[in-house]
Amino acid sequence: FFGAEPEVYIMDNEASTDLNTTMKLTDLKYQLVPPHQHRRNAAEKAIRTFKNHFIAGICSVDPKFPITEWDRIVSQSLITLNLLRNARTNPKLSSYAYLNGVFGFNKTSLAPPETKLFLHEKPKNRGSCSPHGTERWYIGPSLERYRCVKSFLPNTYSERDCNTVDFFPKKIVFPSVSTDDYLCHCLRDILSILKYPPPSTIQCLQAGDITLTIIQQIADILYHHAPDKREKILHHPLSQRSF
Rank of each mutant, 00 (worst) to 15 (best):
F2Y: 07
E7Y: 04
V8A: 12
Y9G: 01
L19A: 06
M23V: 03
M23K: 05
L25I: 06
D27T: 10
D27Q: 06
K29G: 08
K29C: 02
Y30N: 01
V33M: 09
V33N: 05
P34W: 01
P35M: 12
P35F: 13
Q37G: 00
Q37F: 08
H38Q: 01
A43W: 09
A43K: 10
A43R: 11
K45C: 15
R48E: 01
K51H: 00
N52K: 13
N52I: 13
F54I: 03
G57E: 07
S60D: 03
S60M: 06
S60P: 00
D62T: 05
P63C: 07
K64P: 00
K64C: 12
P66I: 11
P66R: 08
T68V: 09
E69C: 14
W70L: 07
I73Q: 02
V74S: 04
I79C: 01
N82R: 11
L83K: 02
L84K: 15
R88G: 12
K92V: 05
L93G: 02
L93N: 06
L93T: 05
S95L: 14
S95F: 04
S95N: 11
Y96L: 05
Y98C: 07
L99T: 05
L99W: 03
G101E: 07
G101I: 11
F103R: 05
F105P: 03
K107P: 02
L110Y: 02
P113K: 01
E114V: 12
T115E: 06
T115I: 08
L119D: 03
L119R: 09
E121H: 10
N125R: 13
N125H: 15
R126Q: 05
G127Q: 09
S128C: 14
S128V: 12
H132S: 13
T134V: 13
E135T: 15
R136D: 11
W137N: 02
W137M: 09
Y138V: 07
G140R: 00
S142F: 01
R145N: 08
Y146I: 09
S151G: 04
F152C: 02
F152H: 04
P154G: 12
Y157S: 14
R160A: 13
D161M: 08
D161S: 15
C162M: 08
C162E: 07
V165I: 11
V165N: 02
D166W: 14
F167N: 01
F168M: 15
K170H: 13
I172H: 14
I172F: 10
V173K: 11
P175E: 03
S176V: 04
T179I: 12
D181M: 07
R188G: 00
I190E: 11
I190Q: 13
I190G: 03
L191C: 10
S192A: 14
S192H: 15
I193F: 07
I193D: 01
Y196R: 15
P197H: 00
I202H: 05
I202C: 07
Q203P: 05
Q203A: 10
C204Y: 08
D209C: 14
T213D: 03
A219L: 15
D220A: 00
L222K: 08
L222E: 06
Y223H: 15
H224M: 11
H225T: 11
P227E: 04
K229Q: 03
K229T: 02
K232Q: 03
I233K: 00
I233F: 02
L234V: 01
L234E: 08
H235I: 09
P237W: 02
S239A: 13
S239I: 04
Q240R: 12
Q240I: 10
Q240F: 06
R241C: 14
S242L: 10
